[in-house]
Write a protein that binds this DNA or RNA. Structure first.
Lengths: 203, 203
DNA sequence: GTTTAATTTAAACATTTGTTTAATTTTGCG
DNA sequence: CGCAAAATTAAACAAATGTTTAAATTAAAC
C-alpha cells in the first residue's frame, strides 16, 4: 500500500467515526483526499471493503500486551499500569474504536464483528489475570472481570463520544489540550474506581 | 396523533436505533408499518422531523425525578434507589437513548443536541445532590458527580450496545429473559461500584 | 523512442434516496 | 344520498448514492 492509499484510509476512518458509515459518501472521502472518486474503487474495490481494511488495520492494536504491565510486582501498581496501557492503546488509534463500537450494533453490516468480540474476550481475560494476581496475594477481593471491563470500556467510550458535552461540563478554556486532560482525568478516575471495587468490602 | 402515527414513531425509533438514521430508509419504515411511503411525509413532513419528534417524545422520560428516591433517609438506600430509578428510566424507553447517544456525535444532524446535554446536566445535578446528602451525613466521601455519572451512563450504554456480546459472555440460555437478567446484573454492579467509590479511602 | 502496463480522469451507469404530485379512495357531515 | 375534506395510493421527481466504463495520461520496460 502506498502513501496515498494509507492517507485515504486515515481520512475514511475519521469520516466514518464522525458521520457514520452510511453518513459518509465515497465522494466525501475522495474530495478530502483530493482524488477522483473512481480511485477508491480502483484501490479498495468497494466501500464496504474499505471499512473492513480500516478495521483490520487497527483492531490488533487494541489488544492488551501483558509485557506492558506485568513487570510490576505490586498488585496495585500492576493494575495502574494495566489501566494506563488500556487507555493509551485506545487513544493512540484515534477513531477505529468508536467505529467498531458503533458498527458492532448494526446488524446489516458485513463487517466481521467476530474481530471485535474476540478482542474484547482477549482483553477481559488479561484483566482477569491481573485481578487474580492481586487476589492470590491477598490484595484484592474477587470481582467479575466482565463487569470490570464493562465499566472501563463504557466510561472510556462515554468520554470519547461526548467530547463537546465534557468540554462544556469541565469548562476548559479552548486552548487547553483537551485530549491530554481528558486522558489524565479518565486514567485517574478509572484507577480509583477499579481499585475501589477490588478492595471494597461486601456488606 | 392517531394510533397509526404512534406506531410509525415506534417502528422508526427501533429501526433508527438498530441501523442508524442514514442506515434506515423511509421505505424501510413504511414497509414495516404496512403503509405507503408517502404517508410518512404526509404525517411528519420529513424524515428529519420524524427523528426530532421521536426524540422530543421520550427525552423528558429520561429525566430523573427526586421523588422516586429521596424518600429514603439512609444515604446508601437512597443511592440504591437512585440507581434503580436511573436504570429503569432508560430501560423503559427502549431505544431512544441509544439513538440520542449515537446521534450526539454526528455533527451533521440538525437534531438539537442541546436537549441531550441539558438532560445530562440535570441528571448529574441530581446525582450530586444524593452524593452531597451522604457526604453531609458522614456516610460518603466526596467524589466528582460528573465522573460518577460518566461511569453510570457508560457502563449502561456499553451493556445496551453490545447485547450479542454479553449473550455470549454470560452464556445465557436463549429462553431466559435477557433484558431482566441484564437489568439486575447492571443494577447490582452499579450499586456496588458507586458505593465502593463513595466509601473508598484515598490513599 | 516506442510500446506496454499502470494510473488517473470525466462521464455514464443503475439504484436508492427523500419528497412531491395528481389521481383515487375513504370518511364525515348536512 | 351528495359532497367536501381527509386519507391513501401509485407514479414520478430530482438528487445522491456506489460502481463501472472507456478514454486520457503517466510510468516503466525494453
Amino acid at each position: 500500500m502506498n502513501q496515498k492509499q494509507l492517507e485515504i484510509l486515515d481520512i475514511a476512518e475519521t469520516l466514518f467515526a464522525k458521520n457514520g458509515f452510511e453518513g459518509t459518501s465515497v465522494r466525501d472521502i475522495a474530495k478530502l483526499a483530493g482524488i477522483n472518486v473512481a480511485m477508491i474503487n480502483y484501490y479498495f474495490e468497494s466501500k464496504e471493503n474499505l471499512l473492513e481494511l480500516i478495521v483490520k488495520r487497527s483492531a490488533h492494536a487494541y489488544k492488551l500486551v501483558p509485557e506492558q504491565y506485568n513487570t510490576e510486582e505490586d498488585s496495585f501498581k500492576r493494575l495502574d499500569k494495566l489501566i494506563d496501557h488500556y487507555i493509551d492503546s485506545k487513544f493512540d488509534n484515534k477513531d477505529v474504536y468508536q467505529l467498531l463500537f458503533m458498527e458492532a450494533k448494526i446488524k446489516k453490516r458485513i463487517i466481521n464483528s467476530t474481530v471485535f468480540k474476540e478482542l474484547r474476550k482477549h482483553n477481559t481475560q488479561l484483566i482477569k489475570e491481573v485481578i487474580d494476581y492481586g487476589y492470590e496475594r491477598g490484595d484484592f477481593r474477587y470481582y467479575d472481570p466482565i463487569l470490570i471491563h464493562s465499566t472501563m470500556i463504557g466510561t472510556f467510550m462515554n468520554f470519547k463520544m461526548n467530547r463537546s458535552l465534557y468540554e462544556e461540563l469541565l469548562a476548559l478554556s479552548p486552548d487547553e489540550d483537551f485530549d491530554k486532560i481528558q486522558k489524565e482525568l479518565l486514567s485517574k478516575h478509572l484507577k480509583f474506581t477499579i481499585k475501589a471495587i477490588l478492595t471494597h468490602e461486601h456488606k
